[in-house]
Design a protein around this nucleic acid. Structure first.
Length: 535
RNA sequence: GGGCCGGUAGCUCAACUGGCAGAGCAGCGGACUUUUAAUCCGCGGGUUGUGGGUUCGAUUCCCACCCGGCCUACCA
C-alpha cells in the first residue's frame, strides 16, 4: 500500500519539527479550562467586561478540527472532551514568524495547546485570542471528509477510532450506553443487590440454549466454554445465602450475526430471593424507566418510524392471549404438534413438519407477535417446554411463571420465577438431554453440580435477564446492534496494509533531539506511586 | 448456507452502449486582518478489492475468489 501524499507531507513536517529541536509528542499539557468551561467562564463574566476581552489568560487544549486561514489572521476550532471552541490567531499579536510557523506545521487532527484571552468575535462566537500555542501531538493521518465524515460501514467498524473522532452522534451513543449501565447499577445497588463476578470460562455451559464458543484450558488440561449465560452460577449464590445478586457481563453465543444478535453481547442478570416473576416484572419496569430517565431525561423515545413511550404502567398480556390476538391460535387447545404445524403453515410461518411444538410456538411469537409489540409489553406465562429453568404455575403445570419484555419489536428481557425443585430441574434437564440426542444442538447439557446445589435448597426466587445492547439500541434509536458495540467483530482482512514497511524509512525520527533539559521537580516515584498491585 | 447490492484518489462520490479515470472536500503553492463548509487563483495525487478470461482496447463484459451491506436462513 505505501503511504499517501498526505501522510508523506505530515511525515516531512514531523521531520522538520525534529530538526528544529521540537518534540512533536511532548509528555505534558497545560490546561486551565476545558473548551466548555472556557465558554461558560466568558459567558458568566462578559456583562462586566464592557466589550473588552477577558483580562485573564486561559489555557485550552484540543484536537484541531477546522482551520480557516485568512492571511494575516487564522481561525481554528479545537475540540476536547467537553466540546469545541474557536481560537483566533493574528499576526500582530503572535508575530510574523509564529503565525507562519502555525500555518506551516499545524494540520487538522493535530492536538495543540493555546493560551490567550477569551473574547467574543464580531460574528458573536466566544473565542480564544491566542498569545502562545504549542503542538501537543502531531497527527500523521488526515481526517475523513469534512462534511460527510466516514460513511463506509466496514471502515467505521474496523477503525472505530476514526468513526468516533469524526462523529459526535457516534460518540454520544456510547455515552448513553455508559449512563444506562450506571443507572441500572445504581438502581440495583440501592435495593440491596450485591454485584458479583462469576466465571466467563465454564467447564459446562448452561443457563440458555445456544451453541457455545469452545476453548482449551491448558493449565487444567480440559475443554472449556465461554459462558452463554451466568444464570446457573448466580443461582448457586442464592443457595450460598446471598439474597440479592446481580452481574453485568459479556455472554458469548456461537451463532449468527444480524441486526439484533451479536455473538458477544452484554447481559444484566439479577436474582432476588422471596420474589416471584410478578415482583420482578414490577422491578423491571421501574428499573428500565429509571435508566431511561437518567440517561435520556425523557420516557418518550423515537424508534425508527415509531415513537416509544416508556411511561408506566406497561401493558401485560399472557402469551396465550397475545398469540390468540395476532394468530388466532390458542396454544392451550392446539396441543397436537400436527395441528399446530398445519395452523402455523396456514399463516405462512416458516416451519417444517419436524419442527417440535414449542419451537413452532416460538416461531409464531417471533414472526407474528414480536414485530408488532412496539410499546412496552410484558408477555407472560409460557409453556413449560420452552423454559427448562422456570417454575411451573401451581394451577396449570403446562405453563411456567415466565415473562418476556418487548419494546420496539425487540426482545429486551426475560424472567422467571426460578425453578428450585431439584427433582423437577433434573427432569427438565433429562428432557433437554433427549432433545439433544435427537439433534437439538442448543438443548442444555445436564449440570449435575447445579442439581446438587439445588439439593441444598434455593429459596423461592425471581430471576431476570436484560439485553443491555438492545436497551442501548432502543434508547439511541439504532436499528443495528453493532452500532451500540464499540468494536464489533469482522472477518480479518487477509491483505497486508504494508504500513510497517512504508513507515520503516521514518523510524530514525523517533530519536528526539533534546532541547531543554528536564527541570521538573517531580519524581516519577512520587508521582505514580506503587499502588498498582497487579502482577 | 441462499438471494440481492456494493468495493474507483486520504474521505465522499461520478464515469452513458467497452473508447484519454473525473469532481467536491482534504493536501501542496499563492492572495486575503473577523471567518463559521470562509473565499479566490494555480498544482499534485489512482495496482479502479484480488486473480484469471474475452477484446485492438476492460472501472465497464465473463469466471473464480476476498471483504462488506441488506434480506433470508440459523438463533427460547
Amino acid at each position: 500500500m505505501g503511504l499517501n501524499d498526505q501522510q508523506e507531507q505530515r511525515l516531512a513536517k514531523l521531520r522538520a519539527l525534529r530538526e528544529q529541536g521540537l518534540d512533536p509528542y511532548p509528555p505534558r499539557a497545560l490546561r486551565t479550562h476545558s473548551a466548555a468551561e472556557a465558554v461558560a467562564r466568558f459567558t458568566a463574566i462578559e456583562p462586566s467586561l464592557g466589550g473588552e476581552p477577558d483580562p485573564e489568560v486561559v489555557a485550552v487544549v484540543g484536537r484541531v478540527v477546522a482551520i480557516r486561514d485568512l492571511g494575516r489572521i487564522v481561525f481554528c476550532h479545537i475540540r476536547d472532551g467537553s466540546g469545541a471552541i474557536q481560537i483566533y490567531l493574528r499576526r500582530d499579536l503572535l508575530g510574523d514568524e509564529r503565525l507562519a510557523w502555525f500555518k506551516r506545521f499545524i494540520d487538522l487532527n493535530d492536538f495543540i495547546e493555546v493560551q490567550g484571552h477569551l473574547f467574543r468575535t464580531r460574528t458573536g462566537e466566544i473565542s480564544v485570542q491566542v498569545q502562545e500555542f504549542r503542538l501537543l501531538t502531531k497527527a500523521l493521518n488526515p481526517p475523513p471528509d469534512k462534511w460527510r465524515g466516514l460513511s463506509d460501514v466496514e471502515t467505521r467498524y474496523r477503525q472505530r477510532y476514526v468513526d468516533l473522532l469524526t462523529s459526535e452522534k457516534v460518540r454520544r451513543i456510547f455515552v448513553v450506553r455508559a449512563q444506562l449501565i450506571r443507572a441500572l447499577r445504581r438502581y440495583l445497588d440501592e435495593r440491596g443487590f450485591l454485584e458479583v463476578e462469576t466465571p466467563t470460562l465454564q467447564p459446562i455451559y448452561g443457563g440458555a440454549a445456544a451453541r457455545p464458543f469452545t476453548t482449551y484450558y491448558h493449565a487444567l488440561d480440559q475443554t472449556f466454554y465461554l459462558r452463554i449465560s451466568d444464570e446457573l452460577y448466580l443461582k448457586r449464590l442464592l443457595v450460598g445465602g446471598y439474597e440479592r445478586v446481580y452481574e453485568i457481563c459479556k455472554d458469548f453465543r456461537n451463532e449468527g450475526i444480524d441486526a439484533r444478535h451479536s455473538p458477544e453481547f452484554t447481559m444484566l442478570e439479577f436474582y432476588a430471593a422471596y420474589c416471584d416473576y410478578l415482583d420482578v416484572m414490577q422491578m423491571c419496569e421501574e428499573m428500565v424507566v429509571y435508566a431511561a430517565e437518567q440517561a435520556l431525561g425523557t420516557l418518550v423515545i423515537p424508534w425508527g418510524e415509531h415513537t416509544v413511550d416508556l411511561t408506566p404502567p406497561w401493558r401485560r398480556v399472557s402469551l396465550r392471549e397475545v398469540l390468540l390476538e395476532h394468530t388466532g391460535i390458542d396454544f392451550l387447545h392446539v396441543t397436537e404438534q400436527a395441528e399446530l404445524y398445519a395452523r402455523a403453515r396456514a399463516l405462512g410461518a416458516d416451519v417444517q413438519p419436524t419442527t417440535v411444538w414449542p419451537r413452532i410456538l416460538d416461531e409464531l411469537l417471533k414472526s407474528f407477535v414480536r414485530p408488532r409489540l412496539i410499546q412496552p409489553t410484558f408477555v407472560y406465562d409460557y409453556p413449560v417446554e420452552l423454559s427448562p429453568l422456570a417454575k411451573r404455575k401451581p394451577d396449570d403445570p403446562r405453563l411456567v411463571e415466565r415473562f418476556q419484555l418487548f419494546i420496539g419489536g425487540l426482545e429486551l428481557a426475560n424472567a422467571y420465577t426460578e425453578l428450585n425443585d431439584p427433582l423437577d430441574q433434573l427432569a427438565r434437564f433429562l428432557e433437554q438431554a433427549r432433545d439433544r440426542e435427537l439433534g437439538d444442538e442448543e438443548a442444555m447439557p445436564i449440570d449435575e453440580d447445579f442439581i446438587n446445589a439445588l439439593m441444598y435448597g434455593m429459596p423461592p426466587t425471581g430471576g431476570f435477564g436484560l439485553g443491555i445492547d438492545r436497551l442501548v439500541m432502543l434508547c439511541t434509536n439504532q436499528q443495528n446492534i453493532r452500532e451500540v458495540i464499540l468494536f464489533p467483530q469482522l472477518r480479518v482482512k487477509p491483505e497486508m496494509t504494508g504500513l510497517v514497511e512504508a513507515l520503516a524509512p521514518y523510524l530514525h525520527l523517533v530519536v528526539a533531539t533534546p532541547t531543554v533539559p528536564t527541570i521538573s521537580g517531580r519524581s516519577p516515584s512520587a508521582d505514580e506511586g506503587s499502588d498498582s498491585s497487579h502482577d
